[in-house]
Amino acid sequence: MSPVTYVRAPSATEAVRMGSEPGVRLLGGGTNLVDLMRKGVEAPSGLIDVTALADRVEQADDGGLVIGAPTRNSVVAAHPLIRTRYPMLSRAILAGASAQVRNMATVGGNLMQRTRCLYFNDAAGSRCNKRVPGSGCDAIGGSNRYHAIIGGSAACVATHPSDMCVALAALDARVRIAGPNGVRTVQLVDFHRLPGDRPDIETVLDHAEMIVAIELPAPLKALHSGYRKVRDRASYAFALVSVAAGLSMQDGRVRDVRVAFGGIAPKPWRAIRIEEALRGIPLVPETTAAAIEAEFAEAALLPGNAFKRELAKRTLTAMLNELAGDDA
């Protein structure tokens, strides 16, 4: 690891000012960034620790919640308002990493965490377009069990590994961003980019900007929701496929449905097509299957990850059935 300078930002304004210096990076819990620095994947010249900034969960005027970016993952998961109003989010966070990592990890860092692609992480020995644009991708012909089946490109098939973000995508969360020109807000589903030919550019965040908070709109009424994570061991493993789903039924028909996938795409994957297809109709196996099928019509399967299409379909189907059962 190369030597770095380290300062604690006293305020968001200061953090933005200091963070706009070239080579400088914001530091949350460090559970991802410091690892990557040790591996030589990242080499910032300076770190600006933002964990002293507003790390609270607050009620918003519209009935939603505002979660400060430096809030620890474990604090969010355990918060009474999150647990009662957005249980899906609690579950998603608790399905990730380990208690120790969650105690350190911040919400801002979780959004910004980088892929677990083995070739991205092997700075010394592998080619990666995300790490070194234009250098090539060793994952596509190599070990790609954890890689994307939708949304990838010829340059990159890495996945965004977060569990929390999958729930946030399903919940219509917004990201509040502060920059030199003030504050702006983007939808979480628009925050992460698809790789295209620039897999190194992962989000819409400018270098001079920082995440200050996550905004959750008021919870949907009568939504039964859940988060299911499928992985290679019972805990402490990244998702092969994860599903955040919410369902509310009225008179035997789908009143509202939310579906987001993790583990299968370069970003938290909100399955808009499935939602549109199912809204307003009864949940019958054939139509549900067709709706899900359509979402994966353009899936690009690799030898190591081809099974994930079937796995994603089955996992979502089982969840919808379960949620519908809850509603009955």
């Binding site: 677990r116 070739y119 190599g142 805990s235």
Partner: peptide, 17 residues
């Protein structure tokens, strides 16, 4: 080359397993 040379990527049973 060995690609999963870390305990995050090389799985051994966790307590829950």
């Amino acid at each position: 080359r060995i690609m999963n040379a870390t305990l995050a990527d090389y799985h051994i049973p966790a307590h829950l397993d």
